[in-house]
Structure formats: C-alpha cells, structure tokens
Nucleic acid binder design. Sequence first.
DNA 1: CGTCACATTGATCCAGCTCAAAAACCGTGG
DNA 2: CCACGGTTTTTGAGCTGGATCAATGTGACG
Lengths: 243, 243
Amino acid sequence: MTDSPTAVSCGNCSVRRLCLPAGLSAADIDRLEQVTRRKKIVKAGEPLYRAGDPFANLYAIRSGSFKTAVIAADGDTQVTHFALPGELLGLDGYSDRCHPSYAEALEDSSVCVLPFAHLETLAQQVPALQQQIYSIFSEELKQENDILMLLGKRSADTRLAALLINISSRYARRGYSASQFVLSMPRTDIANYLGLTAETVSRLFSRFQKEKLIQARGRVVEILDLVGLSELAGTHCSYDSDG
Amino acid sequence: MTDSPTAVSCGNCSVRRLCLPAGLSAADIDRLEQVTRRKKIVKAGEPLYRAGDPFANLYAIRSGSFKTAVIAADGDTQVTHFALPGELLGLDGYSDRCHPSYAEALEDSSVCVLPFAHLETLAQQVPALQQQIYSIFSEELKQENDILMLLGKRSADTRLAALLINISSRYARRGYSASQFVLSMPRTDIANYLGLTAETVSRLFSRFQKEKLIQARGRVVEILDLVGLSELAGTHCSYDSDG
DNA sequence: CGTCACATTGATCCAGCTCAAAAACCGTGG
DNA sequence: CCACGGTTTTTGAGCTGGATCAATGTGACG
C-alpha cells in the first residue's frame, strides 16, 4: 500500500462518467480534484480497509477490482459486493464512523482516497456533487434489493447466470468487451456471494459450457449465448442493466 | 389515503430521536418542519407508493408499519424490509427518479410526506441535516449487509430467530416492550423476507414454542428466552443491535 | 519439477420445499 | 350471539436441489 505520486485528475480519468465527477461542470470537477488527489495502490489479496477500521475516507476505484464482505462474530463471512472501476467503497461506514465490512483487492488495483469530511464540505457548496453522492447511495440500495431477490428466491443456475450477465454489462459500460472477460475472483468468492458452495458453482460452470451458454477456461469467460443466459437469469432486468 | 389536517411537529414527535430530526438543534428542527408538514394516512394493505411511481417524496413513518418489496418481471416479489416508526421510505428511488420497489402498509399507518427537492435544498443549508441523511443512507446499507449474511448463509431457524430479535430490539428502541409485541405482517411476508416458505416459518414458530423460546398466539409474540433465541440467531450481533 | 492453492467431479445426504388437507381466525350480516 | 365464507395458519408426508464429504485434476510459481 503506497501512495502514488502520479497526479491523475478526475477530468481525464477513464471512469469519470461512472464516478463522482458524473454530472459536474468542469469548474466543479476542478474543485473535486482537491479532494481526490491522494491515490493508493492495493495489491491482489490485500485489504483496502478492514471491519472495525475507523471511517475516514471513501475510496473510488480507479483500476482493478475489489470484493467487500461482512464478518459475523463466529468468523463466518459473506461476500456482499464485487466492485469495479468507478465505484465507491466505504459508504456503509458513515453512520458508525467505523467500517462494518472489509474490502479486499481481487487483483492489483488502485484507488482514489477521498477524505469524507472534505468531500462533505465540498458537497455542501456544490449541489451537483451532493446529488451525485445521493445518487450513488441510492443506486447502491437499489442494487442490494436485486441481490436480495437473487438470494431469497432464485435457483442456483439463475443466480450464476444473473451474476455473469451483471458483470458482463458492467464491463461493457466501462468500455470493455461484454462477451469476453476475466473473473478476477475465485470460485469460492462467487459461491459465497451467491449463497452457494464452490462445488455447486463449479458444476454450473461445467453445465453452462455443456449447454453452450458460455465458454470458460479457469477464470476467463466468454459468453456464447447472451439471450439464453438472460433467459436463465430470468426476468432479472434491473440487475443486468445495472451500473 | 387522505391528508391529515393535524399539525404535528417534529419537535414533539415520538420518534424524533430515530428520524430526521436526530441531532438537529431546535432552530434547525423548526426549519425542518417546513418540509415535514404534510401527513398522509395509509390503511392496512394499501400501497404508499408502487414500483415505477415517479420519485418525488420520501416518507417518514409516524405510526404503524410497512413492508417494502421488489417485483421481478415475472411478477415474483421479494420482501426487502419491514419498516417501523421513525424510519424513512423511498430512498432507493433517488437515482432513477422512480421508485424501484413498492411500500405497503401492514396496518393502518401514518407518514410524513417529505418533498425531496425541498429537503435537499434545506440539507444544503443545514449541515447537521445533511449528515443525518448520509447517516440514514449509510445505516440502511449496513443493515442490508446483515440481511445478505442471513439469506446467504444461515439456516431457517437462525433466520427466524434473528428476525424476532431484530424486531424486538427495534420495538424496544421505540419505547415498547422488547419481550411482547404483535407482528404486523402475515407469515407469508415473514417467509418471503427470510427466503423461506410460509410452511417452514409456521413449523419454526411451533418448534420455538415447544422449546420454550417464545410464546406465540397468531401474530402476538412473547419472547420467553431471549438468551436462547440470541444464541440461535447466532453471533448475529450487528443485526440485533440495529435501529 | 515439486508444491500449493484453486478447481472439478463423483457419491451421498438432508434441510427445506411442495403438495395436500385440516384447523383457527376474522369480519359481516342475519 | 352465532353462522358463514374467506383468509391465514398449522400440520403431515414425501421429494429434491444443493450441501457435504472425498478424491482427483490443473495450473502458477519458486
């Protein structure tokens, strides 16, 4: 975990349309850059923050990917989110001034460190930024609803199909291929996230291949039949059009 | 759904310590009351808003209770939350200017209607209000994590025990008995929320009674053995200390 | 080229689902 | 006050999707 000296600005960041700067004027982005100056590199497997850490910053993912998870008192963990560039981590720590979950890099990644107190002050002066923060909070709540539907009601194959489509569409929004991508997380994390076991997930990958829905070699996935996969994922529209 | 003429102010509202006014000065509460003037009565079974409705207001529950749920395209629904007095409904509609979920009264209830545009403007001027809004968003995200843990990993009995303890502690925070309360929702809603079937929930109620953990007669529940129930609910601390 | 973590595959088991039917509860009207 | 019809809840019997346990395969890296 080192601070990078590279001065990369929001104005030319590749994910600015998905991140805090979205909807801000050039002048406001200039002001936002006062808050987003500090960068941080997190290596694969390293934590960005741990459960219980004091809340001071939000983190905007610049590159790479993370998982977030909560830990029960018995040590059992639940993966709650896979986060891609442009997404904000740490919002759930605000109310208690303490991170209730932990975030871990799934691959070598870099983030902008956003001191929340500073961001808060700026948002007070820049309504568009305020709105963008609300928007991100709200979006996250909306996504959680869809995951609840997945975990509460859907069969194993539907869950995995929904996840694949979700990740595919999120890569697409970031300018990458929607049909070919590398899952940066191990099967165990996918299984945990979906409320399944790694064995079940593995069997589903095999089955999806037999059914020519996908082509997978380890973590490299190619979607062969998006329509078929979407049908399997069900009517899960809001989930696959998410951001 | 009628507008009540009764002028009830935040300053003497019974749930002011749990709701938006929390942490605000008397002067700021006066200003907040400009936003919270309109009240609305919702009868049991009636919707407060439906999925797809344009987002214009948040709703603060004054009395009664609600369930919120999302509907998949195939009509399948997932109950996502049971909301009690002092809680805010509708936050997930901000980003799309459209409610992605619906909220329905579980009993005759009343809410404050908060025009969000107005609230937003005021929050821009009152930092303490701004912070309270962040806090509520953040708290909600944190709670969702706990529900994900429940749905992803926990057995049926653990889920129900966790829900009972959660509801008990929420009533307690509102000044009601923690050991005796009326569940305002039918078994089917409990089951749906917990990712179970109504039959399973009913069997668990019977079993919990046989094991002297609770005493239940229909929807009236008395917790006989809080320690035992908590152990069953597991190490699910953050969930049972929630608000 | 050996090691170690990750992934796949197979065999068996069981928690919770499904289907079915009976019982309790609630409002309504006679 | 009781009878009636609809809804909610309980209980029973059997089935099944996904878990568990166990073994084998694979690929990255020192």
